[in-house]
Design a protein around this nucleic acid. Structure first.
Lengths: 206, 206
DNA sequence: TAGATTGTTAATCGATTAACAATC
DNA sequence: TAGATTGTTAATCGATTAACAATC
């Protein structure tokens, strides 16, 4: 189990974890591979094989315990524990992201929000207040932040990403839609809802 | 070209289209398979093969014309043209989504926003005003809406999805994070940014 | 017991990778 | 011409699918 997982397996396990977390919040105590398959669009046999590679977590005729499986996958992905995020952009999008618990559900905590607009600095947002981008390096260092979320207009995205990388962030999560370049040792993920929509549309029109 | 594409190819083509659209907005006129690969994390050879199956779009030694390739892929995916969206939820998240042009960039137009809170109904949001959920069926019918976007709290998501499906929407785009059930002939996509974050984190910790 | 679902095998299919000639 | 990148082939790897015994 100390060996590194392949990219495919790791991605699928993360997806199962998301579904299980939501199922738990909805009050479910057990779930079958077929149900996970419906929500993830991953083949049910594949799901069972992915899981059985690490142990026998299921009960034949019943399915998997939601709670127990969350624990097992967290252990496999080594993502249990607390991870800190800094959010850049206190506009509508940034505040909307800060408000949801999509990140909190998985142990990610938004420890700081920054915005270059002085009018927004000092404003409260939940338990924290908006700070200046000048504080980024200090925040990342003091709070051991590894993830930076970019929630600014496309035109400012590259420059914000550069700031984040300079400040020591290792993973950039980009909501702006713009293409962003970073050094090879930093990971960028750009959210692109339109991609899924184009895909779904193709099969509905065909 | 009249035959239906496999799911893998269609998903990748949609992703290329997203990158090309952003590249065009950034003023790029040409792009190589290696650059598309950097932004999509799809293997460059795979990209060239995907494209060459439909024609010879590239120039050896140069790459692909961004503009021309956007046209070709739009033709292949048959997604050129205008498609209408109705957005449910005029909270921070809903308004943030309405504000961005991630959807508009690909010809999707948000033709209506509805919210069950009477205090929000009538409020302006760009060129339109917030309406009541009671108007959903009429809106979907009159404006030929095929996509419904769910931007409400998780606790209300299933009920909103039910309303949308009853009103005739064929594709549900769920930003709430909650698990949603719909009839077999309707497609749901649930955005889950945390999945990508868990995945990226795994490889950074390992 | 009967019904359901897991765990697992074998066969097929699609994606990835390396390599390289063609050509801009 | 020289350098770069496409288009394409062949070999490997991983995902999907069908089938079914094991067992809850």
């Amino acid at each position: 189990m100390t060996e590194r997982l392949g990219g495919g397996v790791a991605a699928r396990l993360a997806h199962y974890l998301q579904v299980l977390t939501q199922a738990k919040k909805a009050g479910r105590s057990a779930i079958t591979s077929h149900e996970i398959s419906e929500y993830t669009h991953v083949n049910a046999t594949q799901i069972r094989r992915d899981l059985s590679g690490f142990g026998t977590f299921g009960k034949r005729g019943v399915g998997y315990s939601v709670e127990a499986l969350i624990g097992e996958i967290s252990k496999i992905l080594r993502t249990a524990g607390q991870h800190n995020i800094v959010l850049v952009g206190a506009g509508r999008l940034g505040l909307a992201i800060a408000e949801t618990d999509v990140f909190a559900d998985h142990g990610f905590s938004i420890v700081a929000i920054v915005d270059s607009d002085p009018a927004k600095q000092g404003l409260p947002c939940g338990p924290i207040t908006v700070q200046s981008p000048d504080d980024l390096a200090r925040i990342v260092d003091e709070q051991q932040v590894i993830v930076g979320v970019v929630a600014v207009p496309a035109s400012a995205a590259q420059s914000v990403a550069d700031d984040l990388v300079r400040s020591g962030v290792r993973i950039v999560f980009n909501y702006s839609g713009a293409l962003i370049d970073v050094p090879a040792d930093v990971t960028v993920h750009t959210t692109s809802p339109a991609v899924e929509l184009l895909y779904a549309l193709y099969f509905h029109l065909a």
